[in-house]
Simulated assay, not measured.
Amino acid sequence: MSRWPKYVAGVCAAFALTVASAIQVAAADDEPVAPSYSYVGGLAAQVTRPGGPPPGANDWSCRPSSVHPNPVVLLHGLSNDTITWNSLSPVLAGAGFCVFTTTYGTGPLGPIGAITPVEESAVQIGAFIDHVLTVTGAAKVDLVGHSMGGAVPFYYLNHLGGVSKIDDYIAMGAPLHGTTLSGLQSMFAGLLEQPAIDELLTSRCGPCQLSYGAPFLRTLNADPAIAPDIRFTMIVSRYDEIATPYTTGLLDGPNVHNIVLQDLCATDYTEHYELTADPVAVRAVLDALEPARAEPASCAVVLPFIGPVGR
């Protein structure tokens, strides 16, 4: 008999226990001292503090220091800032960065953002960046985006004058060249190619605009050459099930640093959603923002959704 059903059952049981534990911790302490390094920690935060900013974010009295002159703006994917940045935000704040997040592009899915067309989401992101710059007095921000949040800003760079306002651009699992959704797209290819349905989806659905082969990808123009002074860091996982193939999150250029997490830690089984909480990926973000203080990755067994084992 195959061991696969037992493995799946074991992962599901561990996931359920981790969710329950994370909810208990979040309910007991509204401002956790340490990040959970688990995607389910973000889910628990959404249950206990729905729509609230992640720990360490949106302190509008924060002023960038000479060591960290750029505020860091965190941009979620098909989710929201509460869920996505529950782990990374307190790490960055603890390292001395001014951290700011927003949920953009909300639509029919309630608290879930990055739904609206890329053009609309990019306008909202641009307005938020302008607000951060005005309040903090900084000249530029550093961007850290996950999934759609790592792709949409290219529209901001290309079409909304964002190049001069960005210093570091860090993307995690971003569908920069489109996504096949692990092959699911091909199952509905015939339906999606119908002109009426294609027009309906692409006029109202941001993620649909970034499907593999979508014409909008030419408009997005994920080309680092448009901004030679911006430092691009692309972080991906070979086990990504949403931004597929995982190489869709990589770029080419002299101002690009591509990171495949499994090249740093072979026992990192992070998939798309755990990516923003994965300690190896979090370390890579810190290293990109502070290259002078870069440290080797501390490897552990990191499970999908659940996070590191034994940490």
Rank of each mutant, 00 (worst) to 15 (best):
S2W: 03
A9T: 13
C12T: 07
C12W: 05
C12P: 01
F15N: 13
F15Y: 15
L17I: 14
A22F: 03
Q24W: 00
A27H: 05
D29Y: 09
V33Q: 15
Y37K: 01
A45C: 02
A45M: 08
P54Y: 04
G56M: 09
G56H: 04
A57T: 00
C62T: 06
S66A: 15
H68F: 01
L78T: 06
S79D: 11
D81C: 07
I83N: 08
S89N: 02
L92I: 04
G94C: 12
G94S: 15
G107C: 02
L109G: 08
G113D: 00
T116L: 09
E120P: 00
S121Q: 15
F128K: 05
D130M: 13
A139S: 14
V141W: 01
L143T: 01
G150F: 01
A151G: 08
H159A: 13
G162R: 04
D168G: 08
M172S: 10
G173D: 12
A174F: 02
P175E: 04
H177D: 02
L181H: 01
L181M: 09
G183A: 06
L192N: 12
P195G: 03
E199I: 11
L200D: 15
P207V: 13
C208F: 10
L210E: 11
S211R: 09
T219R: 15
N221R: 14
A222W: 08
D223E: 10
A225V: 12
A225C: 14
P228I: 07
P228Y: 11
I230D: 01
T233K: 06
I242G: 01
H257L: 09
Q262K: 11
Y269Q: 12
Y269I: 00
H272F: 00
E274T: 02
A277N: 12
D278W: 00
A284I: 00
V285G: 11
V285F: 04
A288R: 07
P296M: 06
C299Q: 03
C299N: 08
A300Y: 02
